[in-house]
Amino acid sequence: MTYLVIVAFVAILGSLAAALVFMMRGGGQGDDTGSRRKNPMAKALAFRVGFSILLFVVVLLSYWMGWIQPTGLPLRG
């Protein structure tokens, strides 16, 4: 499970870096002739948001199924 979370964070950061590259190149806007292309920056950010939500749901389901346990600091009384 640890490796899955690490890979997910790397994918999230990678898509964020890709969006930054597309933004620095001009946002991937199409020409002014009216043709509508998909904006690669928006696609990269949408992938990041979707993957973040998917990671949250997987961690939540893993906790609910008992595959992972919380290991926080013990409470002092």
Rank of each mutant, 00 (worst) to 15 (best):
L45C: 08
S15W: 06
F22I: 00
M65F: 14
M65T: 13
A44R: 02
Y3G: 09
R76E: 10
T33M: 01
M1K: 14
R37C: 02
L73F: 10
L73G: 06
T2A: 13
L61Q: 07
F56L: 15
G66E: 05
L20C: 04
A19K: 00
V57E: 05
Y3T: 15
D32C: 02
V10I: 14
S52V: 00
F22G: 02
W64P: 00
G28F: 03
P40Y: 06
A42E: 08
L4K: 10
P74W: 06
Y3F: 11
L60N: 04
W64Y: 10
D31L: 08
L75D: 08
V58P: 00
Q69C: 01
F9K: 11
L16T: 14
L54Y: 06
A42I: 11
R76F: 14
L73C: 01
M65C: 03
Q29A: 14
M1Q: 13
A44L: 02
T71A: 15
A11Q: 06
R48Q: 12
Q69L: 10
R37V: 08
R37N: 10
S35N: 06
G34L: 01
Y3H: 11
V5D: 10
F51C: 07
V10K: 09
G14Q: 03
G66Y: 05
G14A: 05
N39W: 00
S15M: 15
W64A: 15
I6M: 09
T71Y: 05
R37K: 07
V10F: 07
P70K: 08
V57L: 14
I68D: 06
D32M: 04
I6F: 07
L60A: 15
R25V: 02
G14K: 03
M65S: 10
V5H: 07
G30F: 01
R25E: 11
G66T: 05
D31M: 05
V21F: 10
F47I: 02
P74M: 09
F56A: 15
T71C: 04
W67D: 12
L13Y: 01
F47M: 04
D32W: 01
G77A: 12
L45W: 01
R36K: 12
T71S: 14
I53T: 13
F9I: 08
L13H: 02
R36D: 05
L60C: 04
T71M: 11
M41C: 11
I6T: 14
V7F: 11
A11M: 09
G77N: 10
P74Y: 03
N39V: 01
W64E: 13
A46F: 04
L4P: 00
R76G: 11
V10N: 08
D32K: 06
Q29D: 04
V59K: 08
K38A: 13
A8K: 05
V57Y: 09
A42D: 07
G50C: 03
L61K: 03
D31C: 06
R36S: 10
A8R: 05
F51H: 11
V49E: 15
P40C: 04
W67T: 07
D32N: 09
L75P: 12
R48P: 00
A42K: 07
I12T: 03
